[in-house]
Design a protein around this nucleic acid. Structure first.
Lengths: 210, 210
DNA sequence: GCACATTTTAAACATGCGTTTTAATTTAAA
DNA sequence: TTTAAATTAAAACGCATGTTTAAAATGTGC
C-alpha cells in the first residue's frame, strides 16, 4: 500500500538524516536532493532557502518536544519535593515521544541540537534560543526549586554545562560507542547513554559550589 | 625593537585566532592570509595544505600542554589520597602554562579542542585522539584511583561527559558570558568559567551510578 | 658580485556551493 | 476538455573555496 510521500517530506527526511550525521554547514543541498531523489531546485521552491529548510527540520521536533516538556515540568512543580534528578527525568518521556516523528527521533534531535549550538554566530542560535528560551527559564526555575542553595548565576552556568555534556554525548555518540565497544567489548545502545548521563548531570548540578 | 616575525608564525597566529572564534571549516585561507598580511599562496608553501595548518596550530599547544599534564598527574598519583577534585585541579597549571604560547592561550586552546571534536569524521578527530589517547588513559587510571567504585566503562563515559561540558563551555563561552552578563548584570571572565566548571565536573564524576 | 636556493607574489585553475531562471510537465478546477 | 495554477526539471549564474603555476623578488654562500 506504499503511501505516496510528498516532495517536501522527502526533503525533510533526507535532510535531517544528513544534518544529524554531518552537521548543517557541511551538508549540501545537492547531497540532500540526491538522497531524497528529488530535483535540486525543489528545496528552494518548497522552503525558500537552505536556512529555512534547517529551521523546518528543527521545527518538526521542537513542536513535539516543547509541549511535552512543558507538561512534565508543570506536573513536577506541583509535587512537594523536587529533586534535581526528578527534573532531568522530565526529559525522558518527551524525548521518547520524538519517536513519533521519526524512528530514531531522540538521537537525531539531540544531534541536531548539538550542531545548532556549535553554530555559534548563525541564525540557528537565535532561532533555537528563541524557542528554547522559555523552556530554559522554566528549567532554571524548577531546578532552583531543587537547589535553592545555588545562586541564579551559578544555576545558569551549570545548566549550560549540562547542555554541553548532553549535546556532546550525542554528537560524538556513535564514535564513542564504537570506542567503548572496542575497549570494553560491551555494546551500548544510544538510549542507554541517556541512562548513564542523567546521574552524572544530577551529581554535577547538586555539587557544592567552590 | 619590534621583532621580525616570520611568515610562518604570522600565519599561525592569525589562523588560531580565527579558528578559535569561528571554527576550522568556516575559516578560509583568504581570511587568514589577509589578517596575517601575507600572500594567499604562502599557506600552501609553508604548510602544504589547510589540513596541515590546522594540525600545526593544534601541535603548538599540545606540545606544551601534554608534558605539563603528564607531570601533574604523575605527581598526584604518588600521593596517598587521590580525589576526583584533585585530578581536575591537575589541569589548572598546565592550562595556565599555555599563556606562554599566547596571551589567551588557555581559552584559545579549549576552543580549538571543541571544534576539533565537533569535526567528527575529520582527520582532526583521529589526530587529536592519537595525541590525547595517552593522556586519556592516564586520566582514566588516575580517576579510577579516586573512584574505585566506578567500573571502567562507567568511568569512560563520565570522562567523555566531562569533556563535553568543558568543550561546550568554551566554544559557546563568549556568547554565554554575554547572555549571563545581560541577565545577571554580572560580567564573568573566561578564566572564572573554569572555576565554576570544576566543582560541577567533580560532582558529576563522583555521583552514584543508577 | 655572481650564482643558486629560498621565498614572495599575482594570476589562474578546478571544484563545489546556494540560488535563479526558464521551460516542461503534472495537477486541479471550471 | 480546456485553462490556469502548481510542481518538477535542466541548465546556468555568480561566488567562494583550496590549490597550483610560473614569474618576480629576496636572501645566501662562495
Amino acid at each position: 500500500m506504499a503511501k505516496r510521500v510528498s516532495t517536501k517530506d522527502k526533503i525533510l527526511n533526507a535532510a535531517e538524516a544528513l544534518f544529524a550525521e554531518h552537521g548543517f554547514e557541511q551538508t549540501s543541498l545537492r547531497q540532500i536532493t540526491a538522497d531524497a531523489e528529488v530535483n535540486l531546485a525543489s528545496v528552494n521552491y518548497h522552503f525558500g532557502s537552505k536556512k529555512a529548510l534547517i529551521q523546518a527540520v528543527m521545527a518538526r521536533y521542537l513542536e513535539v518536544l516543547m509541549p511535552a516538556l512543558d507538561r512534565e515540568l508543570a506536573e513536577l512543580a506541583q509535587r512537594s519535593q523536587v529533586t534535581t534528578r526528578a527534573v532531568f527525568d522530565c526529559f525522558r518521556e518527551p524525548l521518547n515521544e520524538l519517536r513519533q516523528v521519526r524512528k530514531h527521533g531522540p538521537t537525531i534531535f539531540l544531534s541536531l541540537l548539538g550542531y545548532a549550538y556549535a553554530d555559534i554566530q548563525g541564525h540557528l542560535r537565535r532561532y533555537t534560543m528563541d524557542h528554547f528560551g522559555d523552556v530554559m527559564q522554566r528549567l532554571l526555575a524548577t531546578l532552583h526549586l531543587a537547589n535553592p542553595q545555588l545562586s541564579p548565576v551559578d544555576m545558569f552556568w551549570r545548566l549550560h554545562f549540562v547542555l554541553g555534556a548532553t549535546v556532546f554525548a550525542q554528537v560524538s555518540g556513535p564514535a564513542l560507542r564504537e570506542i567503548a565497544a572496542a575497549d570494553f567489548g560491551e555494546a551500548i545502545a544510544a538510549d542507554q547513554v541517556i541512562d548513564r548521563l542523567i546521574p552524572f548531570l544530577a551529581g554535577g548540578v547538586d555539587a557544592p559550589t567552590e
